[in-house]
């Protein structure tokens, strides 16, 4: 009950923020304008949930995990560019997304450079994680545009929820709560899309991919998320590529969600196994 009270406000705030933002798309006719509304919805929705969870942090934040809030807001700009240039400037879109990922990982892991890593070791980590982030972004993008459906992001809702439980077992209720906010935002995009009749666009990719990678990164380096659990969660989005493409869009989305659930459950079990006995909450 205490955990529910702890998690519910942040998730509710995120859902309301996204529902409001997506509701605006009813009054928008241009596709690019609708996509911008989606980008604003996910970025602002996550930011609202983050602030509700922790209060507004100082800028620049002392605690590295609070960069997630500012990066979510920054991703609105990149998402907006994706919406405006959605059929053109593929290279520039990818480059901007890469910059967002590099900034995210650089800022989140800056303390590791100060305390632990040599510049070579740190650069290798950042480069590797940026590649993982690109793969996550590409997977979400593929899921959205290969066979567009209102339920395209269902697999991400499953992975966000799995991450939340795994992070809770890893000792950080805050990161678990932020992952729950992420899931709330994803759920709201699916629900609002279904209500308003909009299919999510690729303007969501920068925010959703960056936050997903950011949460796993924080879980592994600042909480006690086991490496195998984190790795499973990080590679799970790539499972969208192995789903047969001949089925209907809704069926495809459900299969992708089911495959993602296998990864999520395994990640949760590994995090549970690595956790000390839970006997104090």
């Amino acid at each position: 009950m205490f955990l529910l009270q702890q998690f519910a406000p942040a998730v509710i705030v995120a859902i309301i923020a996204v529902m409001l933002a997506v509701g605006i798309t009813r009054w928008l006719s241009a596709d690019w304008a609708k996509e911008i509304a989606f980008a604003v919805a996910v970025g602002a929705g996550y930011a609202a949930g983050h602030v509700k969870s922790t209060s507004w942090p100082a800028f620049p934040p002392v605690d590295a995990t609070h960069w997630l809030l500012f990066l979510a807001l920054g991703s609105i700009l990149i998402g907006t560019f994706h919406a405006i240039a959605r059929r053109h400037a593929a290279f520039l879109r990818s480059a901007l997304f890469g910059v967002l990922l590099l900034a995210t990982l650089g800022l989140l892991l800056r303390p590791k450079f100060k305390l632990e890593w040599s510049s070579i070791e740190g650069s290798m980590w950042i480069a590797g994680l940026t590649l993982v982030g690109c793969m996550v972004g590409w997977s979400i993008d593929w899921a959205i545009r290969s066979q567009p459906s209102r339920f395209s992001l269902l697999f991400l809702l499953v992975l966000g929820s799995g991450s939340s439980v795994a992070l809770a077992f890893s000792g950080s209720l805050l990161l678990a709560q932020l992952a729950a906010v992420y899931s709330g935002v994803t759920f709201a995009v699916i629900a609002a899309g279904a209500i308003a009749g909009n299919v999510p666009g690729r303007s969501l990719v920068p925010c959703l991919a960056t936050l997903f990678v950011g949460l796993i990164t924080c879980g592994y380096w600042y909480a006690d998320l086991p490496w195998n659990s984190g790795l499973l969660l990080a590679v799970a989005p790539a499972s969208v590529f192995v789903v047969p493409s001949k089925s209907t869009p809704v069926r495809q989305a459900l299969i992708r969600a089911a495959v993602a659930a296998i990864f999520a459950v395994l990640a949760v079990l590994l995090a549970r196994r690595a956790s000390p006995p839970i006997d104090y909450y």
Binding site: D63, L115, S172, L173, L174, Y222, P277, D279, Y280
Partner: peptide, 19 residues
Amino acid sequence: HNDKRNQHLKSPDFFNAKQ
């Protein structure tokens, strides 16, 4: 005097011991 609580205190929720 409780491992899980120690882990929680060291996490980003409170002291953020790794940072």
